[in-house]
């Protein structure tokens, strides 16, 4: 168990205790919300973990680094950014996936582009966003988000 794991759990326990002292009903409700989210997220978490395992066993680091490594340049970053754009998985699960890709030779830029487009851009929620906020705002926000995700990724590759 590493330090971050311990810190997250300690914060959760402190928060839960504080909530319990202040209001029992609200604490119950938040635990219900937490349980529901956990169940909802569980299958996706398991799928991603199994995929990480398969990538580790069957895809050679050479292939990953050729596709999204330092040699692949900006094209690789844009491709993985597009993958993040169309994927619809909770960002919490994208971090272990990103870590495993990094370990296998993906570049910092590629991994940063993937996480950033994944979280900022919602292709699946786009129709709803257009309906509620209008075409102009929705399309501008998602389109420019893609561009800034690529810029953020390239800067990260340069400084880390």
């Amino acid at each position: 168990m590493n330090i971050t794991t311990i810190i997250i759990n300690v914060i959760a326990i402190i928060g839960l205790s504080a909530s319990l002292i202040k209001n029992k009903e609200k604490t119950k409700k938040s635990l219900k919300v937490a349980g529901k989210m956990f169940i909802e997220m569980l299958p996706t978490v398991l799928i991603i973990i199994v995929i990480i395992g398969l990538i580790n066993g069957f895809v050679s680091p050479d292939k990953i680094s050729a596709f999204i490594g330092n040699r692949s340049g900006i094209i690789g970053v844009i491709i993985i950014g597009l993958v993040g754009t169309v994927m619809y998985i909770p960002s919490i699960i994208s971090f272990p996936l990103a870590a495993s890709l990094l370990e296998k030779g993906a570049s910092i830029s590629a991994v940063a582009a993937f996480i950033t487009t994944l979280t900022m851009i919602g292709t699946i929620t786009l129709p709803l966003e257009i309906k509620i906020l209008g075409k102009k705002i929705a399309l501008l926000r998602n389109g420019i988000s893609f561009v800034i995700a690529i810029i953020i990724a390239l800067i990260m590759g340069a400084i880390l």
């Binding site: 168990m1 971050t4 794991t5 997250i8 759990n9 914060i11 959760a12 326990i13 928060g15 839960l16 909530s19 609200k26 604490t27 409700k29 938040s30 635990l31 219900k32 919300v33 937490a34 349980g35 989210m37 956990f38 997220m41 978490v45 919490i92």
Partner: peptide
């Protein structure tokens, strides 16, 4: 080891 704690935090913040 981290997911339950993260979910509890999300739940607490959503309610509070």
């Amino acid at each position: 080891l981290i997911l339950p704690a993260v979910m509890i935090l999300l739940g607490l913040l959503e309610v509070w």
